[in-house]
Design a protein around this nucleic acid. Structure first.
Lengths: 336, 336
DNA sequence: GAGTGTTCTGTAATGGATTACACCAAACTG
DNA sequence: CAGTTTGGTGTAATCCATTACAGAACACTC
C-alpha cells in the first residue's frame, strides 16, 4: 500500500484554480482574492497537502537548509554551539544538515562538497584548524560560510569567537599577580591556530608584560580528553609549576583528579584554570575556575550572520568577537 | 560575480553524448563503453561538474537524507547516539538533518512534518516519551521511522534499546544483597515510559523478589540536571535511604557532590548508582558506579535498521535489545 | 463610455536530474 | 546468413514546484 503523494496539481484541480494560484496561497502572496484563498485552503486541508520541499528547492534555487560541519557532536563545547545554531536556524525556518568531520582536513573537504551538492544555502563551520585547501574550498563554494568558535588567522571568512588571546593573558596575569612564576600551559595540538597563535600568544604577552622569562618546557601539547589530563599531570608536577592553564575542560578534570590523588593539592600546590566553562567545571572537586564563553550565543550569532549573507545583505562586522568572562571556583585561590 | 552552475547538459554537450549517458557514468551504470566513460569523466573533471542533489532527489524520489529528531544535542547521552547514527549514515552515503525537539510533543510533530516535507528517506527518533499523536504521525509518515534509545511500550515502531527493567532490577538486587533495605529511586518525570514503565518496574521486581515492601515515598521525580541532583540530595538524606539509584548521570553527580559537602559520605552513608556511564561518572569523586550502555552502538544499530527499511528489506527483529553491563566504581561498596 | 489602473488568475517555461523505452550496432546462435 | 541477444546510446517524459508574463475582470476617473 503505497502512500500516494498529493501534489499542487491535485489541489489546483480540486479547487478549480490554477497551480499558480495554489502556489500563491501556500506562499502567502497577497494577490489572491480572499474567497479564492479560502477555497484553496479548504482543499489543502481536505487533501492534507504538503508542499514538496525538494521540488520547491529545485524551482526556487533555495533549499532552506544549511550545512553544519562539526568536529564531533559528543564534544560538549561544539554541541553547545550547535544548539545555538539550530535554534536560530529554526527561528528563520532553516533546517540543519549536521556532519561530523573529526577535525580531519580531507573529511572536511568531502563533507563541504556533499553539502554543496545538496544545495545548502549556507554553511557553518566549526573546527580546530583551517588550512589553505579548506580556505580555497570556502572561496569556491557558491554558498556563504561562517566560522563558529573557530579562528582563521587569515580572516577572510566571517567568524564568531571570543578574544582567546586576551582571555588567556588576563588569567595568566592574575596568576602572576598572585605570585606565581612558574605557570604551565596545557594545550591541545600546537598545529591548531587557536593554541599556537592565540592562547600561546596571550600567555607570552602576560609573561613579557610581567618581565618573566618564557620557558617553552612549561608548554604541553596534549589531547582534548580526560585521560590526556591524567597522563599529563605527573609531568606538570615534575616541572615545578605552581599553576596551570588548561585548554580543555575534560583535560583539566583529568589533571585535577590525578593531582588530588597523587597528593598534589589543588589549589594549594597547583592552581588550575580552564577554558570552556562546561558542566564539567562544576562537577569536579575542587570545581574549576574557568574562562566563560557565551557558547550558545557564538552559535546563535554565527547563524544570524549566515542568514544575512544568505539574503545578500552586508555584514556589519565580518569578525565578531563576543565578550568572555572568568568565573572563580575552588581550583584557584582568591585574590588577595 | 555569480558562480554559474555546470549542469549535466553542459557535460553532455562538451562530451558529445546525451545526458542519459552522463547520468549513467555518474551513477556507475555498467552499460557504458569504457571509452565513452573515460571521455565523459574527463569532461566532468574539466568542467568541475557536481550533480545537483536536489534535482536528483526530485527525479529519483530519494533524497539520501534522513531526519534525526533529538531532544537536545547538548545532552551527552543523546549526543553519543547521534554520533553513532551519523557515522553509519555516512557509511551508507546518507546525510543527517538534525533537529532539537526539547522533548516537546508539539514540536516533535512539527519537526516530523517538516522532515517529511523535505522528503527524507527515513527518520530516527530519540525522545523520552511517545504519545498517541506521535504514534499516529509515525504511521502516517511515508518514510520509515526507527526509535533509538527510546522506548515505546506499544512496540509498533522498530526500536533499539537496552533492557532498562532488567538493568535496574540487577543493580537493585545487588544493593539488597549487600544489606540495603531502604533504597531510593531518583528518576526523571514519571510521565515518561522509560521511568514509569521500565525502571520503576525493575525496582519493584527486585524488591518483591527479595520480599521487601515497596514504599513510594522513596521514589523521586526530578529533572535531568546537576542542579536537580543537588536539590534532591537533602530530601534523600532525610528519607533514611542508604542507597540510591539515579536515572541520569548529571543528577547523580549533583547528588554525590551535595552529599559529600553536607557530610553524608558516599558510599559509606549512601551508595549511588547511575544509568548512562557518560564521562561524568569518571570525573566525580567518588566516581560513580553505573549501568553501561553501548550508546554509540544503539545509534549505529538504529541507523543500520533504518537503511534496511529504506531499501524495503525485512527486519530480523523489530525490537532490538542490546546488552548492558555494570561498572563498579567508588560510589558503591564492593560486594562481600 | 472610453481610458487607465489595480487586482486577480492562468499559461507555460524553467530548474537539473532520472529513467522507461526505443533504437541501432555488434556479437552470438544454429 | 537470417534470427536472436546483448551492449551501448539517445529521446523524451517525468518529478513538483516557482515565477515571468500575459490577460481577464473590475473599479475608478473624467
Amino acid at each position: 500500500m503505497e502512500k500516494q503523494t498529493v501534489t499542487i496539481y491535485d489541489v489546483a484541480r480540486e479547487a478549480a484554480v490554477s497551480m499558480a494560484t495554489v502556489s500563491r496561497v501556500v506562499n502567502g502572496n497577497p494577490n489572491v482574492k480572499p474567497a479564492t484563498r479560502k477555497k484553496v485552503l479548504a482543499v489543502i486541508e481536505r487533501l492534507d497537502y504538503r508542499p514538496n520541499a525538494v521540488a520547491r528547492g529545485l524551482a526556487s534555487k533555495r533549499s532552506t537548509t544549511v550545512g553544519v560541519i562539526i568536529p564531533d557532536v559528543t564534544n560538549i563545547y561544539f554541541a553547545a554551539l550547535a544548539r545555538g545554531i539550530d535554534d536560530i536556524a529554526m527561528m528563520y525556518k532553516y533546517n540543519i544538515i549536521l556532519t561530523n568531520s573529526d577535525d580531519a582536513g580531507e573529511q572536511e573537504v568531502n563533507v563541504l562538497n556533499t553539502l554543496m551538492a545538496k544545495q545548502v544555502d549556507g554553511v557553518i563551520f566549526m573546527g580546530n584548524h583551517i588550512d589553505d585547501q579548506l580556505r580555497a574550498e570556502f572561496k569556491r563554494a557558491k554558498a556563504p560560510v561562517v566560522l563558529a568558535g573557530t579562528v582563521d588567522p587569515e580572516g577572510d571568512t566571517p567568524s564568531v569567537n571570543i578574544d582567546y588571546t586576551a582571555a588567556v593573558e588576563e588569567t595568566i596575569t592574575a596568576l602572576i599577580k598572585r605570585g606565581h612564576t612558574k605557570i604551565a600551559l596545557a594545550l591541545g595540538p600546537l598545529s591548531q591556530s587557536i593554541n599556537a597563535e592565540y592562547r600561546l600568544a596571550g600567555y607570552k604577552r602576560a609573561l613579557s608584560k610581567a618581565k618573566l622569562p618564557y620557558d617553552d618546557s612549561l608548554v604541553y601539547e596534549a589531547g582534548y580528553s580526560y585521560d590526556a589530563g591524567t597522563k599529563l599531570q605527573p609531568v606538570i608536577a615534575d616541572s615545578g609549576a605552581t599553576a596551570v592553564f588548561v585548554g580543555d575542560d575534560e583535560m583539566a578534570a583529568g589533571i585535577i583528579n590525578a593531582s588530588m590523588e597523587s597528593g598534589v593539592s589543588v589549589p594549594d600546590d597547583l592552581e588550575v584554570i580552564t577554558s570552556n566553562d562546561t558542566i564539567i567545571t562544576q562537577i569536579t572537586r575542587p570545581a574549576i575556575t574557568s574562562i566563560t564563553q557565551p557558547l550558545y550565543d557564538i552559535g546563535a550569532v554565527a547563524m544570524r550572520m549566515l542568514t544575512k549573507l544568505m539574503n545578500d545583505k552586508e555584514l556589519d562586522e565580518k569578525t565578531v568577537t563576543l565578550p568572555y568572562g572568568i568565573v572563580r571556583r575552588a581550583s584557584t585561590k582568591s585574590a588577595e
